[in-house]
């Protein structure tokens, strides 16, 4: 409504007035933009939410061949203590066979670039449409590639959590994590 373009009909000093109008309009626009920011920023994750954005997990109780599920940022986090056989299988797959080519090593490296092939840590959310794949608990179907199997639309993941068959486009996501000691891993 208050556009600064005003006809100057009959006023004493139109140039000075136009300049003032433009300056005022610009400053008001800056003010409006600066005012909008707190309203937008208000909807960002709050400090109490951010404080839970990283979790520390003690992995020492997880036996070889077992896996646990941890709640991380409201999503399931899969932590699997892989057997030597599983690691070997994952390593042996040629990249050309993969829909989303990633080496197994690149998926078991923490933020300090240390490779721990026995620990596979992934977000347990199918990259197709967000279901939680089966296979993390004993007795659940692991699918044709011995990893995870999504019951919603039949995506199957291998022992490195890589997509092998089904509609999912990507491998299961590896979150940023860091082993702060041999038994404590900090995720997020």
């Amino acid at each position: 409504m208050a556009t600064p373009s005003i006809p100057a009909g009959g006023h004493s000093d139109p140039t000075r007035r136009d300049f003032l109008m433009v300056a005022t309009g610009s400053l008001a626009a800056v003010g409006a933009a600066a005012t909008a920011w707190p309203f937008i920023n208000n909807l960002n994750p709050a400090a109490d939410t951010l404080a839970l954005a990283s979790v520390e997990v003690n992995v020492s109780p997880i036996q070889v061949g077992q896996a646990i599920t941890v709640n991380w940022r409201g999503q399931p986090l899969f932590i699997r203590h892989r057997t030597a056989q599983e690691i070997k299988e994952a390593d042996a797959v040629p990249l050309s066979e993969l829909r989303d080519p990633q080496t197994d090593n690149s998926r078991v490296t923490d933020l300090a670039k240390k490779v721990r092939p026995e620990w596979l840590i992934m977000v347990g959310v199918c990259t197709h449409l967000g279901c939680v794949p089966l296979g993390n608990k004993p007795g659940q179907p692991k699918g044709p590639y011995g990893g995870w199997f999504c019951p919603c639309h039949g995506s199957a993941y291998d022992t490195s959590g890589r997509i092998r068959v089904g509609p999912a486009p990507k491998n299961l996501v590896i979150p940023p994590y860091l082993f702060t000691s041999d038994t404590i891993v900090k995720v997020g």
């Binding site: 006023h11 004493s12 000093d13 003032l20 005022t24």
Partner: peptide, 11 residues
């Protein structure tokens, strides 16, 4: 600024 604009408009 608003005051200056108002003054010049009402001059």
């Amino acid at each position: 600024l608003m005051y200056a604009v108002k003054r010049s408009v009402w001059a």
